[in-house]
Design a binder for these strands. Sequence first.
DNA 1: ACTTACGGGACTTCCCGTTAAT
DNA 2: ATTAACGGGAAGTCCCGTAAGT
Lengths: 219, 219, 219, 219
Amino acid sequence: MRSAISDPAKQSSRSDTRRRILDAAYALVLRHGYTATTVDRVLRQTGLTKGAFFHYFQSKSDLALALIERYAAEGRESLHAALVRAEQASEDPLEQLLFFHRDVLARAESPEPAGAPLAGCLIACAAYELEAHSPEVRAVMRSAVMHYRSVLTSKLREVAARYQPRMPVDPAELAEHLYGVYDGGLVIGRLLGDSQALARQLRQTECYLRLLFAPAPWA
Amino acid sequence: MRSAISDPAKQSSRSDTRRRILDAAYALVLRHGYTATTVDRVLRQTGLTKGAFFHYFQSKSDLALALIERYAAEGRESLHAALVRAEQASEDPLEQLLFFHRDVLARAESPEPAGAPLAGCLIACAAYELEAHSPEVRAVMRSAVMHYRSVLTSKLREVAARYQPRMPVDPAELAEHLYGVYDGGLVIGRLLGDSQALARQLRQTECYLRLLFAPAPWA
Amino acid sequence: MRSAISDPAKQSSRSDTRRRILDAAYALVLRHGYTATTVDRVLRQTGLTKGAFFHYFQSKSDLALALIERYAAEGRESLHAALVRAEQASEDPLEQLLFFHRDVLARAESPEPAGAPLAGCLIACAAYELEAHSPEVRAVMRSAVMHYRSVLTSKLREVAARYQPRMPVDPAELAEHLYGVYDGGLVIGRLLGDSQALARQLRQTECYLRLLFAPAPWA
Amino acid sequence: MRSAISDPAKQSSRSDTRRRILDAAYALVLRHGYTATTVDRVLRQTGLTKGAFFHYFQSKSDLALALIERYAAEGRESLHAALVRAEQASEDPLEQLLFFHRDVLARAESPEPAGAPLAGCLIACAAYELEAHSPEVRAVMRSAVMHYRSVLTSKLREVAARYQPRMPVDPAELAEHLYGVYDGGLVIGRLLGDSQALARQLRQTECYLRLLFAPAPWA
DNA sequence: ACTTACGGGACTTCCCGTTAAT
DNA sequence: ATTAACGGGAAGTCCCGTAAGT
């Protein structure tokens, strides 16, 4: 038997327990909302106790902060990765944009694995319990949107430089629109109980982008 | 002494108290979310007491139901009224659609009166605390979306019948998209603390609609 | 059967429940200290529930405030009454002072009724958990001492005006001393578990006062 | 490399950590009381962790015991030292008593070094959270008072043997009074937030002692 | 000698809802 | 129609202590 030092099961126990809490809380917040997600419920879900929870988080709002920070960080990474893939796939910015968009769409179309948390943007979720959250949480929410918008704005500028848009559109507003449609799609999905709603929304956006940047004299 | 029945101040007091509760609850739910909106808080806001509340509502979830039912009904009426105005303004379905859309946009652009509740769709709000709500509430939510979608779908069909869309688009999906962009715009507005975000989203949608149904040889 | 309006048992129920809480809390604080006096314990003692407690007190520290305010008010009344009695008993201020002092002593000597709370000054008690109390509570504590001191100082000035003290003594300091000996006596009583300790302390003070204001040629 | 045993820095670290805990706990108990002094708070103050605490103390009440035992021992030593100094200063017991008393007074008058714990008698402090303490702690409390009283009683007997008291006073009661005034003075100091209150009390006691044992026919 | 992770429970607070009374 | 009193329970926080490891 190997020493405890190198026992990976034991070694990762710290981050493991913390992660289990975060995962359970993530799923519960998306289903019930933040306020209705009680610490006890998270604990019941994970099989842990109060002691463990407050060992890793100073308060419930500390958990909230950790939760959106993680969500925002993952979102940034995912955005970056998708963009890199798009840029590897083509030299043309419009192609890249559409590649990126289809990438997002593909994920929206693929059926969620069973047991996955109800789809929904954690940040939008927090937006609907705004005053239940600390200023720190609100700052993370804002900066998440602003990061997405600024990254997409750059790409849209590249596109607009090469493809004269058929309508005068501010790249930043369009970037914001893309984020908005995504959140809107998730909301519709929840309202209708239909996980394909997001995909439908994204297909509309694809049409919009295609029309907007369509190369010259239309057939 | 006049009978209480014929005293108009007295007679309307019933619905008045009830309305005050609903109004206060509406504003609080949009700010804090449903779960965080405690009955006590509503009472503090209105200056009423427990007994008064439970005289008008059997339970907190009964309040929730009354709240979205009122919101959904108002939405239906507002949609209907806007459509009537649009139909009076023009004979052409595309003109009507764009008129309707600019109507919505105009309301989004007009600054909220001070003291107005934080903008947000009560139905989307409920969608983010889904499991905190009763099945009745969820049914109202669903049917609200479906009503909006079916009404808009009809109009879009009329448009598509006369103006060949430049992309093959399902009217129902497009109608759903319109709802989604609206909700998405409100979310962005909350996230950025910017009440003009919704208007920006709607302007994008207007571009989309114009491009989609633009009459033939594009200049 | 009489109507509930005039039923004294029912009519006084509000102040009655509140008073029961205060009485139980008073006894418990003197035995265990404020921090160790949990709300649950007070409730167990009174047979009431959480709901009742928080109906009458907004918080535990609100209870603390009510508790010393009541204690301080009773102390002021008791001081006033004793002084009035003393002034009715004699015209001479020294006689009055000694009458007053013996009055206090007599109460200290009389055995506590069984079940009475452990003797101790609630204000001194709070002084030993100083930072566990709110500034409001601390203000009440201070003003209680200052009131006692100022009342006694007046009387001592009258005495000193007629009876040349054998030592140069500041009346205010002497008044303060009287309060200090009282508190000290209660502490000794608790330390030794001897309810007569206070009486012993007060007898020393009586000697002191007699010696200090003893009329001229001694012995 | 030197052995840990002979490394003085290392060797004293044991008692050093223990002492740091005791010092921090002492200051915290005087400010907040015993019950409100949580182990975690002591740990935060010292920068140590749970494990360290429970390495040196079996339980929180074990800390309490160590705390008053140390306090009581220091008190005994301090009393003994002051008495020795007094006895070296004079042959006359009254002179010795007054010397001793002025010694105590001098310490009460000297301003506390900044950062010193709020003045107060740890034993009196424990007396106000009586039932929160173990019987062992209560035994230490009692014996501390009794030791002080018996030592002082001896000295007072010597005085009384040479200087006929002007009032019939039991030496033991007078000794107890001295302790009581001390505790009372500390309480007043806390109540008024005035570190000189104790000195004022002690000056009164000095007057009392001088009057009581004043040599023959007074001027 | 000292740390981190955690168990298990107690404490304050507050919430939803009922009842008796008016 | 409205109030005050109160029940009963749960939520968030924190506390004391243990245990495994280093």
